[in-house]
Write a protein that binds this DNA or RNA. Structure first.
Lengths: 222, 222
DNA sequence: GTCTATAACCGGATAGAC
DNA sequence: GTCTATCCGGTTATAGAC
């Protein structure tokens, strides 16, 4: 009896989620009303809210799904590329590629995740489980590359690459160009700049600049 | 007769706006309902919409109000400071000082203004009336400073400073430290870094890096 | 033709009955 | 677990007063 009920509830929940994801895809996020999700899933509005306490929560399930795909795709890149730049660009490209078909939904999600008070923002402790693997990914990016990086810079780089990757995503969200050519252009050009800057950071001429940059990062660390 | 009516309507409009700004301050943006604005102003909901066709429009007035104050404050800075760094830091400090008492409102607005599709976002054409004077301000910052800047860099710098200033504000929105000490620390340290980078940009050794940076900016220009 | 007020719509979210 | 009924707030329609 209990088992039957549990199974049924899981089916209902899965049904609602699948319906919602389909409608998000077909109509976009804002155009998908909770009433429409309930109707199409063949349940009541109240029941939909019983399983998902907000419309946002439906989007977060979708987001988690995409994340898993993206990380799998990055593994492929890291096992092939050997230069720092190719690995960095490859990983970001792989993540973008997975997200690309769902841009409209990511834009909507950003609205929630950008809120500093929202526990889903990319710097909140509650999203550390998402952020830390991502930083670890950029550590792998550097570790497997064949460039030498000064030790002090090397320490900060994974987190800086994580920030860089957030920046690219931010740009993408605002990018209105066809096929997001501007985003990919930015990625190509800025990654070259960044990798060159990393290489140059070992140069004595840039030592004072490098020192004050590292000091700044140290002082801002929480 | 006509004049009387016009005057009365202007008073009504001003009354609604002042009430809205007060409530935004007291309760925040999302917590301020249009019904509350109407109630507190002693007019009907319909009348509020007669004068302001959306809640966003009230926000535009709020922005304009703050910017006018901020610019006045910046004038003082620009007539006193002579070095590029002091002018840059002074102008950003002045703007932050004006915005400081309204942080709660800015945070709640950010959730809306961060949305690329929302007309309140800082890159939207509907906010050009705020953005362009701001870029012009940073042009003044550079023009009145006694540092020499290579002409090609000089061209891009006002917009880059505008982006930098948005970055500082973004950091501020997330900053939970008492009196926003982290934001001011970031401002001090990063501005020094940036001004040093601008000075170094004239150095022949950095010419390739500078060139590719400028090329990137040119290619990304819409 | 300028202004004000009331009622209603829409969609996200909740309460409480069964 | 599921429903119906309802709230809530942004927005609109409309009717009419001056």
């Amino acid at each position: 009896m209990l088992a039957t009920k549990t199974i049924k509830s899981e089916q209902t929940k899965a049904n609602i989620l699948q319906t919602a994801l389909r409608l998000f895809r077909e109509r976009g996020y804002e155009e998908t009303t909770m009433r429409a999700v309930a109707d199409e899933a063949g349940v009541s509005l109240g029941n939909t809210y019983y399983y998902f306490k907000s419309k946002d929560e439906l989007v977060h399930h979708f987001y988690a799904h995409i994340q898993a795909q993206a990380f799998a795709s990055c593994d492929g890149v890291l096992s092939v590329e050997t230069t720092l730049r190719a690995r960095l660009v490859g990983v970001i490209r792989a993540q973008l590629a997975v997200a690309l078909p769902y841009k409209a939904i990511f834009v909507s999600l950003f609205r929630i995740a950008a809120d500093p008070r929202n526990e889903l923002n990319p710097f909140h402790e509650k999203t550390a489980y998402l952020r830390n693997p991502c930083i670890a990914l950029y550590d792998q990016v550097i570790a497997g590359g064949n460039e030498k990086v000064p030790a002090d810079v090397r320490n900060e780089l994974p987190y800086l690459f994580f920030l860089y990757h957030l920046g690219i995503i931010l740009f993408w969200l605002y990018d209105q160009s066809p096929n997001y050519v501007r985003t990919f252009r930015l990625l190509e050009l800025s990654s070259e700049l960044i990798v060159n800057l990393v290489k140059l950071s070992a140069n004595p001429l840039l030592r004072p600049l490098r020192q004050s940059a590292l000091t700044m990062l140290a002082k801002l660390r929480v």
